[in-house]
């Protein structure tokens, strides 16, 4: 099935973004740069995985569910990244 291949491709690429984000988390030098890696790579990674699963599911409730998951997860991620960055800024510069 063609849709299966789309799902496999999108989920694989999404996982690759997660992997790159994790590599960034490990390699980047300080809290702020690590937050860069996590928020951006995970946003795209989760988006692609959700998209792949939407294609696989194909029903309206399933698509809605995955859409809510993506929006909630990225909003929570960006707000917590902001709060961590803010806390780190006020707490000083030690890691």
């Amino acid at each position: 099935m063609l849709t299966d291949w789309w799902t496999i491709a999108l989920v694989t690429v999404g996982c690759a973004f997660f992997l790159a984000g994790t590599v960034g988390l490990l390699r980047f030098p300080d809290v702020h740069t690590r937050l860069h890696a996590l928020t951006k790579a995970d946003n795209v990674g989760l988006g692609l995985i959700c998209l792949g699963l939407m294609i696989h599911d194909g029903t309206l409730p399933g698509i809605l569910r995955l859409g809510f998951i993506w929006i909630l997860a990225i909003f929570a991620a960006t707000v917590s990244a902001f709060l961590i960055a803010r806390w780190h800024e006020s707490a000083g510069t030690e890691d």
């Binding site: 690759a16 973004f17 790159a20 984000g21 590599v23 960034g24 390699r27 980047f28 030098p29 740069t33 860069h36 890696a37 951006k40 790579a41 946003n43 795209v44 990674g45 988006g47």
Partner: peptide, 19 residues
């Protein structure tokens, strides 16, 4: 978002870590 993800992934995987 896509561009940002690609950009940061490229930097994370780049051997010299350009930031």
């Amino acid at each position: 978002s896509l561009y940002g993800g690609l950009d940061v992934a490229g930097r994370a995987l780049h051997p010299r870590l350009p930031l």
